[in-house]
């Protein structure tokens, strides 16, 4: 499957060169990485973040992992934005960053106040909702 997709992509690249209107040519780069490499990288980064959230108990680290996931999403946004030749994806990255900033501010404030109450930031020690 992977092989087939790459072949398809190279073929497309060939068409670009034939037409001689390839933007990379204009910019003098000659060739650029195809979309799915960025998306695969994005998926790997996101998964790393998910695993981090699942296995770490420190609330701050969990938070960092969430930032990691948001960044992975941003990467996918930007990659697809370039692929479509549109700026919309980057606008969304802007929004994501704003929300992330707000979320970090609130989240860290909550962690601080939890720490003040319980002297811990370990999520497995904060289980007041246990049924």
């Amino acid at each position: 499957m992977l092989q087939a997709t790459i072949t398809l992509q190279l073929y497309k690249g060939g068409i670009f060169i034939d037409r001689a209107i390839m933007p990379t040519t204009v910019k003098g780069k000659g060739f650029y990485m195809s979309l799915e490499y960025y998306l695969i990288l994005s998926a790997l980064l996101f998964t790393t973040g998910v695993i981090g959230v699942l296995i770490r108990r420190n609330a701050i680290i969990i938070f960092m992992c969430i930032e990691l996931m948001l960044n992975a999403a941003n990467l996918a946004f930007v990659a697809i934005s370039r692929s479509l030749g549109e700026a919309t994806g980057q606008v969304f990255v802007f929004f994501v960053m704003t929300v992330a900033a707000a979320e970090v501010a609130i989240g860290l404030a909550i962690i601080v106040s939890v720490f003040k109450h319980r002297q811990t930031v370990n999520v497995d020690e904060v289980n007041s909702l246990k049924g």
Partner: peptide
Amino acid sequence: RRLQTGLVQVYI
């Protein structure tokens, strides 16, 4: 009730 451990990570 036992499913509700109160542990965030179990939920995640």
